[in-house]
Amino acid sequence: MSEITQPAKSGPVAGRLANNSQIVLLALLVVLCIGISLSAAQFYSVENVIAILRQCSLVLIVGAGMTMLLIAGEVDLSVGASLAFSGCVAMDVTNKTGSVFLGALAGILFGGLVGLFNGLVVTRLKVNSLIATIATMMILQGGVFLYTREAVQNKHQQPAFTDISTGYLGPIPLPVIIAAAVFACAYVALRYTTLGRYIYAVGANAKAARLSGRRPEQLKLLVFVVTGLLAGLTGLILASLMNTGQPTAGRGFELTVIAAVILGGTSLLGGRGTLLGTLLGVLILKVIDNGIIILRWDQNLQMIVPGVVIVLATYLDLVRRRADAR
């Protein structure tokens, strides 16, 4: 009696099973790039490529946190509201102290605090993270207007504040460097450390992880805080980009991030997903965005396309997994 489902087929490539969907995503990305550049040559101009990367960097920073959070089996819908608030805090503290460093720190820490709050509500009060973070989103959206009625301007016109987003290191914009650094750290943490392994384990089966002596609650709390910090960092960069703390910034940003992460193959059910997938997901969504602009299509398509893409990607993933199960 044969004991193994898939004797030969998946043998040596089994470890790369997760990468199958990434090859599809990569192919999709290549096709998109070729397609767009055929119709609009300026797609490959240095300016345009840098513009795309800059666009990607914001989504990728939060996406790195969100990927870990989804792998751990939770979700955070408050990141959009959190980054708007963080940006206002960063700008405000910069104005009040005259120190961009302190302002930046305050913005990032504020995001971290929001993450801590979410994490505590979810792990201690046992509130479903979807509901908990919708509630946090409401609290922040209301709270930011109580904090500041209007956009916080860069009163002292500190150039250092805008440099965070517009500066360059060599030919590469700073936000891209920051995003790359965040991505690299998250990648290493998730792929090569015990922490990363435990995040997968907790998302895949929290009870099993607990029986093995782990503490699922603490791990989840940690990932919520990290996601919060990254939302704060993104809020800082966005505020710097606009040179104001804008209370209405980031509306719907959480959905773009989640769309990119899910497109990258991370499962809403936890335990499955990769940061490389998220990177590809972000690139695809932003290349589509960019393509819509440089092809002079109606920009409102920028909402429709990701919507279709998420559902389609999830469907393909489902088909692949059902085929797997056979």
């Binding site: 769309a259 109606d298 409102n300 429709i304 396309v305 919507g307 998420i310 469907y315 489902l318």
Partner: peptide, 22 residues
């Protein structure tokens, strides 16, 4: 089809709103 309903309706949320804007 069996796609997670949060994802499906997140998708249609985008598509409908985008179509309205369009």
């Amino acid at each position: 089809i069996g796609i997670n309903s949060l994802i499906v309706t997140l998708g249609s949320m985008f598509v409908i709103r985008g179509a309205v804007y369009l």
